[in-house]
Structures are given as structure tokens and as C-alpha cells.
């Protein structure tokens, strides 16, 4: 009994600081469900999570890097690359599709790992490396597919982005995978290296390896987001990833992920990306032009930072 109470208190404390965000989320979701009652059905949830899923995945990718005290400006280009690779490699058979997805995600992991190695081993600031890498990766995406094209088999599009809430299941899988990672020594290394690199290094943590792995996972996640976008649209687009840079950072920051490393978690990134997705959906539903989304996305982050400042006073 006391164990359960302790567990509850721990849970409460862990989420402290995010309650405002949770309340805002519930309120916004309620508004959205009121505007659009169709949300409260299996198909409605499926459609909503489809819009949310890529943002959630890139938010996770960004959170991992920000936990290491870095920043990844190559996420958008990696999403584009994953998208065009999926549209050119995914075969029509089940095996061919699995192979295509695995290859695209693998390429993302290798590219992420390479960027991580440059940051960790050669000690060049993450912001400039990932900015330069975004040009290289974006260029590769353009080489693979100079203009939108390719195709993703219809059954895969329906399966991943159809009437069934596959995206929600995938998110839960990611949550489980994250939990497992946290329980492994490697996951602990990543946390330690993010929280206090010097301390971690002195305690025998291989900081460089932890960083490289974090970047590789981040690259794989971004590429997978690209694969999902390809399934959603049914084709590849070499510049579709652009908006995901700010989206990923915004979601992570809204979710309380700190800029100096070590602060933040899965739930923050998920909550932050959910807020962004609901906001976009509500704006779309109220008939705002797509242009207004840009402006709203830019403003929400400033408002969030302002609110945090008020709370700290």
C-alpha cells in the first residue's frame, strides 16, 4: 500500500512542471472534439494520430539530441531523404516493403551516426555540423529524386495511414522501446552523458559512444518519420521535410526539454508534439489559411517561453 502511494508521489513529482501543458492539451482536445465530433471514433482517432505521428517521431529524435546538449538542424533533410528512399525502394510484396523500410531507416541511422561521430569525436559544435549536414542530406535526397515521384504500394498506405489507428500502435511501440533503452546500460550512458558529460566521463562512461548512438537513433527515427510521410502521401518528395526542423524543436521545447542537456523526457516530447498537432488541426478546422500555421507555429514557442518565465518568477 505504502509502496503504491510512494509510486504515485514519484509519478506526481516527475511530471511537475508539465501539468499546465497537460491541462492545456485536454482543453484543446475537448475543443477539437466539440468542433469535430467525428474525432471520437476509431477512424477519427486514426486520422488524427496520422497527422500527429510524424511530428511526434521527429520531436523524439530532437529530444534525444537535446538531452545530449546538442541540437539537430538536419532532421528536416533526413525526413526528406527517408521519404524519397521509401518511395523508390519499397517493393510491392510484403517482403519487399519490409526490406525497403528497413533500408531507409538504416540509411538514416548511418547518416545520424556519422553526424554524431563528427560532433563527438572531432569536437565541432552540433549546430554547425548539423546545418552543414542538412545541405548534404538534402542534396542526396534531391539526387535520389530530383522532383516528387515514386510510389508506395496502396496496401501499405492503407495499413499505415488508413482507417486503422496503426500510428497509435506504433507510438506505443516507440514508448516501449524507449523504456527498454532507458533500462539498458547504453540508455543510462546516454542520460548520464547528457546530464553531466564531465562527470559521466570521469565515472567511466564512454561519452563519445553514447553521443554517437543517440545521433544514430535520432537519424533512424527521422528517416522513419519520412517513410511514414511517404506512406501518407503515397509518393516521395525531396523537400517535404523542411517544416519538421522547427516543429521538432518547438515540440521538444513545449514539452519542457531543456537546451543545456539532461532535462526532459519522452512524455514531454509526446505532449509537446500533441499540442502542436491539435493546434494545427483546430486551425485547419476553423478555416485558417495554411499560411497562418507558419505564423502560429512561430508565435506559440515565444508564448510558451514567456509563460515559463512568468511561472519561474
Amino acid at each position: 500500500m505504502t509502496g503504491a502511494a510512494l509510486q504515485l508521489r514519484l509519478l506526481w513529482q516527475r511530471n511537475a512542471g508539465l501539468y499546465g501543458l497537460y491541462l492545456l492539451l485536454i482543453a484543446l482536445l475537448a475543443v477539437y472534439a466539440w468542433l469535430h465530433p467525428g474525432l471520437l471514433s476509431v477512424a477519427g482517432v486514426a486520422r488524427f494520430t496520422q497527422n500527429w505521428f510524424p511530428i511526434a517521431v521527429v520531436a523524439l529524435a530532437q529530444t534525444l539530441i537535446m538531452l545530449m546538449g546538442g541540437i539537430d538542424l538536419a532532421i528536416g533533410a533526413t525526413v526528406s531523404l527517408g521519404c524519397v528512399l521509401a518511395a523508390s525502394w519499397i517493393g510491392d510484396s510484403y517482403g519487399g516493403a519490409a526490406l525497403g523500410i528497413a533500408l531507409a531507416v538504416g540509411v538514416g541511422a548511418v547518416i545520424g551516426g556519422t553526424v554524431g561521430a563528427i560532433v563527438a569525436l572531432l569536437r565541432i559544435p552540433a549546430i554547425v555540423v548539423t546545418l552543414a549536414a542538412s545541405f548534404i542530406i538534402g542534396g542526396i535526397a534531391l539526387l535520389v529524386m530530383p522532383r516528387p515521384g515514386g510510389h508506395v504500394p496502396a496496401w501499405l498506405s492503407d495499413g499505415l495511414a488508413g482507417e486503422t489507428p496503426t500510428a497509435l500502435v506504433l507510438l506505443l511501440c516507440l514508448l516501449v522501446a524507449w523504456r527498454i533503452l532507458q533500462a539498458t546500460p547504453l540508455g543510462q550512458d546516454i542520460n548520464a552523458a547528457g546530464n553531466n558529460p564531465h562527470g559521466a566521463f570521469r565515472s567511466g562512461v564512454n561519452v563519445a559512444r553514447a553521443r554517437i548512438v543517440a545521433y544514430a537513433i535520432s537519424g533512424a527515427l527521422s528517416a522513419f518519420a519520412g517513410v511514414y510521410v511517404a506512406a501518407q502521401t503515397g509518393s516521395g518528395d525531396p523537400i517535404i521535410g523542411g517544416p519538421f526542423i522547427l516543429d521538432s524543436i518547438t515540440a521538444a521545447v513545449l514539452g519542457g526539454v531543456g537546451f543545456l542537456g539532461g532535462i526532459g523526457a519522452f512524455r514531454g516530447a509526446i505532449a509537446g508534439s500533441l499540442l502542436l498537432a491539435v493546434m494545427i488541426n483546430v486551425m485547419f478546422f476553423l478555416g485558417f489559411p495554411p499560411v497562418a500555421q507558419y505564423i502560429a507555429k512561430g508565435l506559440i514557442i515565444v508564448v510558451a517561453m514567456g509563460l515559463r518565465l512568468l511561472r519561474e518568477r
Binding site: A132, F135, L142
Partner: peptide
């Protein structure tokens, strides 16, 4: 091509950073 030019530009900047942009940790 535009794609190759982007790659060369990014690679060039990266190479320049490797030589000049390293920070002492």
C-alpha cells in the same frame, strides 16, 4: 545538378569546419 551542388556546398563547409572550427573540450 542542384542536388550535387548542395552536397558539394555542405561538404565544403564541413571540411572547412574540420580544419578551422574545432572547439577545445
Amino acid at each position: 545538378s542542384p542536388g550535387l551542388r548542395m552536397i558539394l556546398f555542405g561538404g565544403l563547409v564541413l571540411a572547412m569546419l574540420l580544419i578551422a572550427g574545432r572547439v577545445q573540450e
